[in-house]
């Protein structure tokens, strides 16, 4: 681990930080007010610290999570606050009871998805490196299992939604497919049996059992 200090710019502030620091640690240590764009602080699962990063000498901007990205000399960083879209896709999972209707449901809730122009913006925007565009294609074509797998590790940072020129909201489409599949098909047999035992009153809990000295080992 190196403690050499480097200089970079975060949210317009000149910041000096050790190379071991993440962007968010460097920003906080420099006195920057940290009341938004922050969440899990290093686990990379909440997506709140999404930011645009331009590295020294590069023209391309990349999308990163500030809690996971180490600082580099000459880096320029701007956080991306997410604003809720005015008309989000609206659906009620309870009304989706017929698995035969899944393709219609996808088209009805996410009508823009079939207009994907394959620009790859979502793929470049994803800080987790998921094949977002492929996932959209799978969902539209009805390959729901494949779509489910693509979005398995999605952290819902919404960067693909911000990037999409067709307003497809790929991460929400992926989540819709995942939710529909679980709600329609996941019926574990042991769980069903146990629920029957509990609901019929056959299984209860005896709280006095722990007061008996012998107990269960």
């Amino acid at each position: 681990m190196s403690d050499d200090k480097v200089s970079l710019v975060i949210e317009g502030r000149e910041v000096s930080a050790p190379t071991s620091a993440s962007i968010i640690q460097a920003y906080s240590a420099s006195g920057g007010q940290l009341v938004t764009n922050v969440g899990c602080m290093g686990q990379g699962v909440c997506g709140s610290c999404r930011c645009m990063v331009r590295r020294d000498g590069q023209r391309e901007v990349s999308m990163e999570l500030a809690c996971e990205t180490p600082v580099e000399a000459g880096m320029q960083v701007a956080f991306v606050s997410y604003f809720q879209p005015k008309r989000p896709h609206v659906y009620d999972l309870d009304t989706l009871t017929d698995g035969w209707q899944i393709l219609d449901a996808i088209d009805e809730v996410f009508p823009q998805a079939k207009h994907c122009r394959h620009c790859g913006g979502c793929d470049r925007a994803c800080p987790r490196g998921l094949d977002v565009q492929k996932g959209v294609e799978y969902a539209v074509s009805g390959d729901v299992q494949a779509a489910k797998d693509v979005f398995s590790e999605c952290i819902m940072c919404n960067l693909c939604t911000l990037a999409c020129p067709e307003r497809i909201r790929p991460n929400h489409l992926g989540l819709f497919v995942r939710r529909a599949l679980a709600a329609l098909t996941l019926r574990p047999v042991e769980l069903m049996r146990r629920l029957r035992q509990i609901e019929s009153g056959q299984l209860t809990v005896d709280v006095s059992a722990v007061d008996r000295p012998e107990g269960r080992p």
Binding site: L93, K148, L175, R178, R179, A182, A183, L186, P188
Partner: peptide, 9 residues
């Protein structure tokens, strides 16, 4: 599960 959460099987 009804809300759409997946579990490993």
């Amino acid at each position: 599960i009804k809300l759409g959460m997946a579990f490993d099987t």
